[in-house]
Amino acid sequence: MTLTLTGLHRYPVKSFRGEALQSALVEPWGLRGDRRWMVVDEDGMVVTARDVPRMLLVVPELVDGGLRLNHPDLDPIEVAVPDGSTLADVQVWSSSLQAAPAGAAADAWVSKVLGAPARLVYLDDPTRRAVNPRFGRSDDRVSFADGYPLLLASEDSLAALNELIAGGRHPQEGPLPMRRFRPSLVVRGAPAWDEDHWRRLRIGDAVFRVVKGCDRCIMTITDPDTAERGKEPLATLARHRRWDGSSWFAMNLIPDTPGGSISVGDSVEVLEREESDGPPR
């Protein structure tokens, strides 16, 4: 089995559009620059494209000293990285922590996108948020990603899923692109769904633990180009990839050797595997 890293993606702002990279530095909490920014409501609760699909139309760019945000209906805005002298309480699912407010101009801009009062915040100290202790170690950390530093998906599994969609109830919605699943890393060269059994990987010179499968939400049924919603892939995953009341696609990773660089084209080696009835969960 010859495995190759074929895609590398970063999402500067949680729930905004991602960007394809050729190489990236692996930090303890994810790829450098990945999901250090986030939108929250007036109470500090995370706001995502699960509830506001049009967030996927915002295109973020990391620039020297900050962030540039682009939207088809708004003038772009540049936001400087906050110095961290002021902090606000924020909530990401079950995680309560502090983040640095981006300022009134940024808040006004994201509020226009959402059509409701909102704030933009920056994770100035990425050591503040721990991963779920059930699947990680006490010193594992994560940015504003849903739960873990990186998400790996397989082209071979997506091809198998698209075949199932083509023969299912909503064939007109397929084939789906990998962008629907917002992975950090994309690999090719294994049998479909073989990643369910991977437990440790080497990509280039970096080593990762494969700690948990990814249970998918309504983000995946949202077209990232139009923000319109359909039925797939959740309808098909619910029939073929259903365990513990959830539908599963892709795997969550934690880096064991942060500080290394990985690149598209790097070889991928499965260092440890475990036979199981689906992904770890």
Rank of each mutant, 00 (worst) to 15 (best):
8 L>S: 10
12 P>E: 11
13 V>Q: 07
16 F>W: 10
23 S>H: 08
30 G>N: 05
34 D>T: 02
34 D>P: 05
35 R>D: 03
38 M>D: 01
45 M>W: 03
55 M>I: 07
62 L>W: 02
66 G>Y: 00
70 N>Y: 09
72 P>I: 04
76 P>A: 11
84 G>K: 12
85 S>Q: 11
87 L>H: 06
91 Q>K: 08
93 W>P: 03
96 S>H: 14
99 A>W: 03
102 A>Q: 07
104 A>C: 06
105 A>W: 07
106 A>R: 01
118 A>Q: 06
121 V>P: 02
121 V>I: 11
122 Y>N: 00
124 D>S: 14
126 P>I: 03
127 T>I: 08
129 R>M: 12
131 V>Q: 00
144 F>C: 09
146 D>H: 01
151 L>A: 06
155 E>A: 05
158 L>F: 05
159 A>S: 13
160 A>H: 14
160 A>N: 11
163 E>Y: 04
166 A>T: 03
167 G>R: 12
168 G>P: 04
168 G>V: 06
172 Q>K: 00
178 M>N: 02
179 R>A: 13
181 F>E: 03
182 R>M: 08
187 V>D: 11
191 P>S: 15
196 D>Y: 12
202 R>F: 13
206 A>S: 12
207 V>N: 04
210 V>Y: 08
214 C>M: 07
216 R>H: 15
219 M>Q: 14
228 E>C: 05
232 E>T: 09
236 T>E: 03
237 L>I: 03
237 L>Y: 04
239 R>Y: 09
240 H>A: 11
240 H>M: 04
243 W>Q: 15
245 G>E: 05
251 M>R: 02
259 G>P: 04
272 E>G: 02
276 S>N: 15
276 S>I: 09
278 G>W: 01
280 P>E: 10
281 R>Q: 12
